[in-house]
Design a binder for these strands. Structure first.
Ligand code: FES
Ligand code: FES
Lengths: 147, 147
DNA sequence: AGAAATAAGGACATTAATATCTTTATATAT
DNA sequence: ATATATAAAGATATTAATGTCCTTATTTCT
Protein backbone atom coordinates (compact mmCIF):
# COMPACT_ATOMS: atom_id res chain seq x y z
CA UNK A 1 0.00 0.00 0.00
CA UNK A 2 2.84 2.35 0.97
CA UNK A 3 6.48 2.06 -0.06
CA UNK A 4 8.99 1.13 2.60
CA UNK A 5 10.37 4.65 2.37
CA UNK A 6 6.94 5.99 3.19
CA UNK A 7 6.46 3.63 6.11
CA UNK A 8 9.82 4.69 7.54
CA UNK A 9 8.81 8.33 7.06
CA UNK A 10 5.56 7.94 8.96
CA UNK A 11 7.16 5.99 11.75
CA UNK A 12 10.05 8.46 12.07
CA UNK A 13 7.65 11.36 12.35
CA UNK A 14 5.43 9.63 14.86
CA UNK A 15 8.49 8.91 16.94
CA UNK A 16 9.68 12.52 16.74
CA UNK A 17 6.23 13.79 17.63
CA UNK A 18 6.04 11.44 20.58
CA UNK A 19 9.19 13.04 21.92
CA UNK A 20 8.29 16.62 21.04
CA UNK A 21 7.76 17.65 24.66
CA UNK A 22 11.32 16.74 25.57
CA UNK A 23 12.63 19.79 23.76
CA UNK A 24 15.63 18.12 22.26
CA UNK A 25 16.78 17.22 18.82
CA UNK A 26 16.83 13.59 17.88
CA UNK A 27 19.59 12.03 15.82
CA UNK A 28 19.42 9.48 13.06
CA UNK A 29 20.85 6.70 15.19
CA UNK A 30 18.08 7.08 17.71
CA UNK A 31 15.38 7.29 15.08
CA UNK A 32 16.59 4.26 13.15
CA UNK A 33 16.81 2.33 16.38
CA UNK A 34 13.37 3.41 17.57
CA UNK A 35 11.60 2.41 14.39
CA UNK A 36 13.85 -0.47 13.38
CA UNK A 37 14.89 0.92 10.01
CA UNK A 38 18.16 1.05 8.04
CA UNK A 39 19.85 4.23 9.21
CA UNK A 40 21.33 5.55 5.99
CA UNK A 41 18.17 4.92 4.05
CA UNK A 42 16.21 6.67 6.75
CA UNK A 43 18.65 9.57 6.43
CA UNK A 44 17.67 10.02 2.78
CA UNK A 45 14.03 10.05 3.68
CA UNK A 46 14.53 12.59 6.44
CA UNK A 47 16.34 14.77 3.93
CA UNK A 48 13.26 14.82 1.76
CA UNK A 49 10.94 15.55 4.66
CA UNK A 50 13.29 18.29 5.73
CA UNK A 51 13.39 19.88 2.28
CA UNK A 52 9.62 19.77 2.15
CA UNK A 53 9.46 21.58 5.45
CA UNK A 54 7.67 18.72 7.15
CA UNK A 55 10.44 18.26 9.67
CA UNK A 56 13.14 20.57 10.97
CA UNK A 57 16.78 19.71 11.47
CA UNK A 58 20.00 21.07 12.89
CA UNK A 59 23.55 19.98 12.28
CA UNK A 60 26.39 19.72 14.73
CA UNK A 61 26.64 18.32 18.23
CA UNK A 62 23.25 18.06 19.89
CA UNK A 63 21.80 18.47 16.46
CA UNK A 64 19.18 16.23 14.97
CA UNK A 65 15.61 16.28 13.80
CA UNK A 66 12.57 17.79 15.45
CA UNK A 67 9.08 18.91 14.67
CA UNK A 68 8.38 22.61 14.74
CA UNK A 69 5.87 23.10 17.52
CA UNK A 70 4.59 26.39 16.15
CA UNK A 71 3.70 24.75 12.84
CA UNK A 72 0.28 23.18 12.30
CA UNK A 73 -0.15 19.47 12.83
CA UNK A 74 1.03 17.16 10.09
CA UNK A 75 -1.59 15.10 8.28
CA UNK A 76 -0.57 11.72 6.99
CA UNK A 77 -1.53 12.74 3.49
CA UNK A 78 1.29 15.31 3.52
CA UNK A 79 3.82 12.63 4.32
CA UNK A 80 2.52 10.15 1.76
CA UNK A 81 2.34 12.91 -0.81
CA UNK A 82 5.96 13.92 -0.15
CA UNK A 83 7.36 10.40 -0.37
CA UNK A 84 5.09 8.29 -2.57
CA UNK A 85 3.15 10.96 -4.42
CA UNK A 86 -0.58 11.11 -4.87
CA UNK A 87 -1.04 8.85 -7.91
CA UNK A 88 -2.11 5.89 -5.76
CA UNK A 89 -4.78 7.96 -4.10
CA UNK A 90 -6.79 8.87 -7.15
CA UNK A 91 -5.56 6.56 -9.92
CA UNK A 92 -7.27 3.51 -11.36
CA UNK A 93 -6.81 0.23 -9.52
CA UNK A 94 -6.22 -1.62 -12.76
CA UNK A 95 -3.87 0.95 -14.24
CA UNK A 96 -6.12 2.71 -16.74
CA UNK A 97 -4.83 6.16 -17.63
CA UNK A 98 -7.54 7.86 -15.66
CA UNK A 99 -10.14 6.79 -13.15
CA UNK A 100 -13.65 7.98 -13.78
CA UNK A 101 -17.22 6.81 -13.40
CA UNK A 102 -17.73 7.66 -17.09
CA UNK A 103 -15.07 5.26 -18.32
CA UNK A 104 -14.66 2.87 -15.42
CA UNK A 105 -12.51 -0.23 -15.26
CA UNK A 106 -14.20 -3.47 -14.17
CA UNK A 107 -13.44 -2.96 -10.50
CA UNK A 108 -14.00 0.78 -10.38
CA UNK A 109 -16.99 0.88 -8.04
CA UNK A 110 -15.63 -1.34 -5.31
CA UNK A 111 -12.08 -0.15 -5.69
CA UNK A 112 -13.13 3.47 -5.33
CA UNK A 113 -14.55 2.62 -1.95
CA UNK A 114 -11.27 1.11 -0.82
CA UNK A 115 -9.39 4.12 -2.12
CA UNK A 116 -11.81 6.53 -0.50
CA UNK A 117 -11.39 4.85 2.82
CA UNK A 118 -7.64 5.16 2.45
CA UNK A 119 -7.95 8.84 1.62
CA UNK A 120 -10.19 9.27 4.60
CA UNK A 121 -7.50 7.72 6.82
CA UNK A 122 -4.72 9.86 5.39
CA UNK A 123 -6.66 13.11 5.41
CA UNK A 124 -8.17 12.55 8.82
CA UNK A 125 -5.25 11.46 10.92
CA UNK A 126 -2.33 13.56 12.02
CA UNK A 127 1.11 12.48 13.11
CA UNK A 128 0.44 14.16 16.43
CA UNK A 129 -2.73 12.16 17.06
CA UNK A 130 -0.93 8.93 16.31
CA UNK A 131 1.99 9.95 18.50
CA UNK A 132 -0.31 10.67 21.42
CA UNK A 133 -1.84 7.21 21.26
CA UNK A 134 1.61 5.74 20.94
CA UNK A 135 2.77 7.59 24.04
CA UNK A 136 -0.25 6.27 25.89
CA UNK A 137 1.00 2.77 25.18
CA UNK A 138 -1.90 2.05 22.86
CA UNK A 139 0.26 1.38 19.81
CA UNK A 140 3.81 0.55 18.83
CA UNK A 141 6.41 1.48 16.23
CA UNK A 142 8.18 -1.81 16.10
CA UNK A 143 7.83 -5.45 16.90
CA UNK A 144 9.52 -6.53 20.06
CA UNK A 145 12.03 -9.23 19.31
CA UNK A 146 13.61 -11.31 22.05
CA UNK A 147 17.32 -11.79 21.50
CA UNK B 1 -2.16 -1.43 -4.49
CA UNK B 2 -1.53 -4.20 -7.02
CA UNK B 3 1.65 -4.76 -9.01
CA UNK B 4 1.53 -4.14 -12.72
CA UNK B 5 1.85 -7.86 -13.26
CA UNK B 6 -1.26 -8.39 -11.18
CA UNK B 7 -3.22 -5.72 -13.04
CA UNK B 8 -2.31 -7.34 -16.34
CA UNK B 9 -3.35 -10.71 -14.93
CA UNK B 10 -6.77 -9.48 -13.88
CA UNK B 11 -7.39 -7.67 -17.14
CA UNK B 12 -6.26 -10.65 -19.23
CA UNK B 13 -8.60 -12.94 -17.39
CA UNK B 14 -11.53 -10.56 -17.62
CA UNK B 15 -10.91 -10.31 -21.33
CA UNK B 16 -10.74 -14.08 -21.72
CA UNK B 17 -13.90 -14.53 -19.70
CA UNK B 18 -15.69 -11.93 -21.77
CA UNK B 19 -14.96 -14.04 -24.85
CA UNK B 20 -15.65 -17.40 -23.24
CA UNK B 21 -18.85 -17.95 -25.19
CA UNK B 22 -17.03 -17.75 -28.50
CA UNK B 23 -15.47 -21.16 -27.96
CA UNK B 24 -12.11 -20.29 -29.31
CA UNK B 25 -8.63 -19.95 -27.90
CA UNK B 26 -7.16 -16.52 -27.64
CA UNK B 27 -3.52 -15.77 -28.41
CA UNK B 28 -1.09 -13.49 -26.66
CA UNK B 29 -1.15 -10.91 -29.40
CA UNK B 30 -4.88 -10.46 -29.05
CA UNK B 31 -4.74 -10.33 -25.27
CA UNK B 32 -1.92 -7.81 -25.13
CA UNK B 33 -3.74 -5.70 -27.66
CA UNK B 34 -7.06 -5.92 -25.85
CA UNK B 35 -5.68 -4.85 -22.51
CA UNK B 36 -2.88 -2.61 -23.73
CA UNK B 37 -0.03 -4.49 -22.09
CA UNK B 38 3.51 -5.48 -23.12
CA UNK B 39 3.09 -8.80 -24.87
CA UNK B 40 6.14 -10.71 -23.64
CA UNK B 41 5.64 -9.60 -20.08
CA UNK B 42 2.04 -10.66 -20.30
CA UNK B 43 3.24 -14.02 -21.58
CA UNK B 44 5.18 -14.59 -18.37
CA UNK B 45 2.14 -13.78 -16.31
CA UNK B 46 -0.09 -16.11 -18.31
CA UNK B 47 2.48 -18.84 -17.72
CA UNK B 48 2.06 -18.43 -14.00
CA UNK B 49 -1.73 -18.40 -14.21
CA UNK B 50 -1.55 -21.47 -16.38
CA UNK B 51 0.69 -23.35 -13.98
CA UNK B 52 -1.63 -22.46 -11.14
CA UNK B 53 -4.52 -23.89 -13.11
CA UNK B 54 -6.35 -20.58 -13.21
CA UNK B 55 -6.29 -20.48 -16.97
CA UNK B 56 -5.97 -23.19 -19.62
CA UNK B 57 -3.80 -23.07 -22.69
CA UNK B 58 -3.04 -24.92 -25.89
CA UNK B 59 -0.06 -24.68 -28.18
CA UNK B 60 0.03 -24.79 -31.93
CA UNK B 61 -2.06 -23.13 -34.62
CA UNK B 62 -5.42 -22.01 -33.29
CA UNK B 63 -3.93 -22.42 -29.86
CA UNK B 64 -4.04 -19.85 -27.13
CA UNK B 65 -5.54 -19.25 -23.73
CA UNK B 66 -9.03 -19.92 -22.49
CA UNK B 67 -10.96 -20.38 -19.29
CA UNK B 68 -12.24 -23.83 -18.49
CA UNK B 69 -16.02 -23.55 -18.47
CA UNK B 70 -16.52 -26.60 -16.32
CA UNK B 71 -14.33 -25.11 -13.60
CA UNK B 72 -15.81 -22.92 -10.87
CA UNK B 73 -15.72 -19.16 -11.26
CA UNK B 74 -12.46 -17.41 -10.48
CA UNK B 75 -12.41 -15.04 -7.54
CA UNK B 76 -10.09 -12.06 -7.73
CA UNK B 77 -8.37 -13.19 -4.56
CA UNK B 78 -7.11 -16.27 -6.42
CA UNK B 79 -5.48 -14.11 -9.04
CA UNK B 80 -3.94 -11.65 -6.61
CA UNK B 81 -2.76 -14.54 -4.48
CA UNK B 82 -1.10 -16.22 -7.47
CA UNK B 83 0.71 -13.10 -8.67
CA UNK B 84 1.30 -10.78 -5.72
CA UNK B 85 0.82 -13.14 -2.81
CA UNK B 86 -1.29 -12.57 0.23
CA UNK B 87 1.10 -10.52 2.40
CA UNK B 88 -0.57 -7.24 1.46
CA UNK B 89 -3.93 -8.55 2.50
CA UNK B 90 -3.20 -9.31 6.11
CA UNK B 91 0.09 -7.57 6.86
CA UNK B 92 0.68 -4.38 8.80
CA UNK B 93 0.30 -1.11 6.93
CA UNK B 94 3.46 0.27 8.50
CA UNK B 95 5.52 -2.85 8.01
CA UNK B 96 5.54 -4.33 11.50
CA UNK B 97 6.30 -8.04 11.48
CA UNK B 98 2.74 -8.95 12.29
CA UNK B 99 -0.55 -7.14 12.41
CA UNK B 100 -2.61 -7.64 15.51
CA UNK B 101 -4.95 -5.72 17.76
CA UNK B 102 -2.78 -6.80 20.70
CA UNK B 103 0.34 -5.12 19.37
CA UNK B 104 -1.02 -2.59 16.89
CA UNK B 105 0.91 0.00 14.94
CA UNK B 106 -0.32 3.59 15.13
CA UNK B 107 -2.62 3.28 12.14
CA UNK B 108 -3.84 -0.24 12.82
CA UNK B 109 -7.51 0.50 13.43
CA UNK B 110 -8.17 2.63 10.38
CA UNK B 111 -5.82 0.69 8.17
CA UNK B 112 -7.52 -2.56 9.02
CA UNK B 113 -10.75 -1.13 7.70
CA UNK B 114 -9.13 -0.26 4.39
CA UNK B 115 -7.57 -3.68 4.17
CA UNK B 116 -10.83 -5.37 5.08
CA UNK B 117 -12.64 -3.53 2.36
CA UNK B 118 -10.00 -4.63 -0.10
CA UNK B 119 -10.35 -8.23 1.04
CA UNK B 120 -14.10 -7.91 0.68
CA UNK B 121 -13.63 -6.76 -2.90
CA UNK B 122 -11.23 -9.55 -3.78
CA UNK B 123 -13.18 -12.30 -2.08
CA UNK B 124 -16.55 -11.13 -3.33
CA UNK B 125 -15.96 -10.48 -7.00
CA UNK B 126 -15.32 -13.04 -9.67
CA UNK B 127 -13.64 -12.60 -13.01
CA UNK B 128 -16.86 -13.81 -14.60
CA UNK B 129 -18.97 -11.13 -12.92
CA UNK B 130 -16.57 -8.44 -14.02
CA UNK B 131 -16.49 -9.84 -17.53
CA UNK B 132 -20.27 -9.79 -17.76
CA UNK B 133 -20.44 -6.11 -16.88
CA UNK B 134 -17.65 -5.44 -19.30
CA UNK B 135 -19.55 -7.21 -22.07
CA UNK B 136 -22.59 -5.11 -21.24
CA UNK B 137 -20.52 -2.02 -21.99
CA UNK B 138 -20.57 -0.94 -18.39
CA UNK B 139 -16.80 -1.01 -17.97
CA UNK B 140 -13.60 -1.03 -19.98
CA UNK B 141 -10.22 -2.72 -20.03
CA UNK B 142 -8.28 0.11 -21.55
CA UNK B 143 -8.34 3.80 -22.16
CA UNK B 144 -9.35 4.76 -25.65
CA UNK B 145 -6.58 6.75 -27.26
CA UNK B 146 -7.13 8.65 -30.48
CA UNK B 147 -4.21 8.25 -32.85
C1' DA C 1 6.66 -35.48 -43.65
C1' DG C 2 7.16 -30.69 -43.51
C1' DA C 3 5.82 -25.95 -42.58
C1' DA C 4 3.66 -22.78 -39.64
C1' DA C 5 1.65 -21.09 -35.39
C1' DT C 6 1.60 -20.91 -30.90
C1' DA C 7 2.70 -21.29 -25.72
C1' DA C 8 6.68 -22.49 -22.61
C1' DG C 9 11.01 -21.61 -21.03
C1' DG C 10 15.24 -19.36 -20.46
C1' DA C 11 18.41 -15.57 -20.91
C1' DC C 12 19.11 -10.93 -20.85
C1' DA C 13 18.15 -5.68 -20.36
C1' DT C 14 16.29 -1.84 -18.17
C1' DT C 15 14.43 0.66 -14.54
C1' DA C 16 13.05 1.65 -9.96
C1' DA C 17 13.36 0.73 -5.04
C1' DT C 18 16.09 -0.19 -1.31
C1' DA C 19 20.35 0.02 1.08
C1' DT C 20 25.17 1.26 2.20
C1' DC C 21 29.27 3.97 2.22
C1' DT C 22 32.09 8.17 1.77
C1' DT C 23 32.75 12.94 1.72
C1' DT C 24 31.34 17.57 2.85
C1' DA C 25 29.23 21.37 5.38
C1' DT C 26 27.84 23.21 9.65
C1' DA C 27 27.21 23.83 14.31
C1' DT C 28 28.77 22.98 19.16
C1' DA C 29 31.76 22.44 22.86
C1' DT C 30 36.23 22.50 24.73
C1' DA D 1 41.32 27.42 17.18
C1' DT D 2 40.54 22.69 17.31
C1' DA D 3 38.13 18.67 17.76
C1' DT D 4 33.75 16.52 17.58
C1' DA D 5 29.08 15.49 16.39
C1' DT D 6 25.76 15.77 13.34
C1' DA D 7 22.85 16.38 8.98
C1' DA D 8 23.45 17.01 3.85
C1' DA D 9 25.03 15.43 -0.24
C1' DG D 10 26.87 12.38 -3.41
C1' DA D 11 28.46 7.96 -5.09
C1' DT D 12 27.88 3.25 -5.34
C1' DA D 13 25.77 -1.43 -4.47
C1' DT D 14 22.10 -4.64 -4.23
C1' DT D 15 17.72 -6.33 -5.11
C1' DA D 16 13.24 -6.59 -7.11
C1' DA D 17 10.04 -5.32 -10.76
C1' DT D 18 9.30 -4.67 -15.36
C1' DG D 19 10.21 -5.53 -20.00
C1' DT D 20 12.40 -7.72 -24.26
C1' DC D 21 14.39 -11.25 -26.97
C1' DC D 22 15.67 -15.89 -28.41
C1' DT D 23 15.17 -20.79 -28.34
C1' DT D 24 12.42 -24.92 -27.64
C1' DA D 25 8.38 -27.89 -27.45
C1' DT D 26 3.96 -28.90 -29.11
C1' DT D 27 0.14 -28.83 -32.00
C1' DT D 28 -2.23 -28.12 -36.37
C1' DC D 29 -2.54 -27.83 -41.14
C1' DT D 30 -1.17 -28.86 -45.76
S1 FES E 1 -11.38 3.33 -13.46
FE1 FES E 1 -10.31 1.77 -12.46
S2 FES E 1 -10.65 2.31 -10.42
FE2 FES E 1 -11.75 3.88 -11.40
S1 FES F 1 -0.42 -3.59 13.18
FE1 FES F 1 -0.13 -2.20 11.59
S2 FES F 1 -1.96 -2.47 10.50
FE2 FES F 1 -2.26 -3.85 12.13
Amino acid sequence: MFSKACKYAIKSLVYLASRADEDRKIGLTEIADAIDSPMHFTAKIMQVLSKQGIVSSAKGPNGGFFIDKTAPDIYLIQVVSAIDGLAHLSGCGLGLKGCSAEHPCPIHDEFSEVRDKLNQLLRGQTIQQLAAEMSDGKSYLKTVIMK
